[in-house]
Amino acid sequence: MSHGEKLMSIRVRVLLLSNFREIVGKREIVEEVNSNLTLGHVLDQLGKKYGRDFKQLVDPKTRTVPSEFIVSINGRVVRDTKVRLNNDDILMLTIQAGGG
């Protein structure tokens, strides 16, 4: 955020799949965060609220999303948690799942 830019509150939809849905008991939640915050901040915030599985979404050393998880923003999978979020972004949290 550039110097003098006004801090705003943004809303992010978080779609919960697999074990994340099971833990929270909901398919979807809404998180409100300051506009200068990153994906990492939101995931940390969720970790504090919901515990271990959510905390594991961010590798504490590299600040990236470990390969066993899938975190997408508007459908695009992201590994770097320093990415900034925008109002009405849709986060999806799940795990690797394949087959047929």
Binding site: S18, R21, S72, G75, M92, T94, A97, G98, G99, G100
Partner: peptide, 12 residues
């Protein structure tokens, strides 16, 4: 394998 549905249907 039903677990895949959550991801694919949500994403489109």
């Amino acid at each position: 394998t039903l677990i895949i549905y959550s991801n694919t249907n949500t994403t489109g």
